[in-house]
């Protein structure tokens, strides 16, 4: 009586597209991204300045790295990934800031990801930015409590 006959839900197909599109402004959806590889977590942090941009490489990634890029992993070291970026612009947008690495600590060969890699963090893929644009002016209360009521 109060409700029309049917509900058409498009949630799954719509969102799978939308969420991917939200992953980064620069580059097309299929553009390759690159991640720097570091001998240690300390090297990664030295380069990118933020621990959260560095993640430990698992065994599967190590094998793939060796096989695909010919990168050398020194015995006794646990390599780390830096964040994903588009090869044309080695910067990332992270928490509203554009971060450029110091560029001194890449001790292993960067690894290019040609697929729509889920390892590329939603907000860490770079896009070219003009100097007149700033980010991070909304969202400072994020996580402090629910935004809903």
């Amino acid at each position: 009586m109060k409700k029309s006959k049917s509900i058409m839900l498009l949630i799954a197909p719509v969102l799978s597209t939308l969420l991917f599109n939200a992953c980064g402004g620069g580059g097309g959806a299929d553009e390759s991204t690159t991640r720097d590889v570091y001998q240690s977590k300390e090297d990664c942090i030295k380069d990118w300045g933020d621990e959260e941009l560095c993640s430990e490489m698992n065994d599967e990634d190590s094998d793939e790295y060796r096989r695909s890029s010919g990168g050398v992993i020194l015995a006794g070291y646990r390599p780390f990934w830096g964040p994903s970026y588009y090869p044309s612009d080695r910067t990332v947008l992270y928490k509203g800031r554009t971060i450029s690495p110091a560029g001194k600590s890449t001790t292993l060969r960067p690894f290019t990801v040609t697929s729509r890699s889920s390892s590329a963090a939603r907000s860490s893929v770079s896009s070219p930015r003009s100097s007149s644009t700033s980010y991070g002016g909304f969202g400072s209360r994020s996580g402090s409590t629910s935004s809903g009521s």
Binding site: L18, L93, S134, G136, F138, G139
Partner: peptide, 24 residues
Amino acid sequence: VHIEEIENVGYDSLNGTFVDAAEM
């Protein structure tokens, strides 16, 4: 629609507009 984190909204002072991560 484009679902986005509000932290990724930018401000373009040249054009006086809010923009997305790709400056649209």
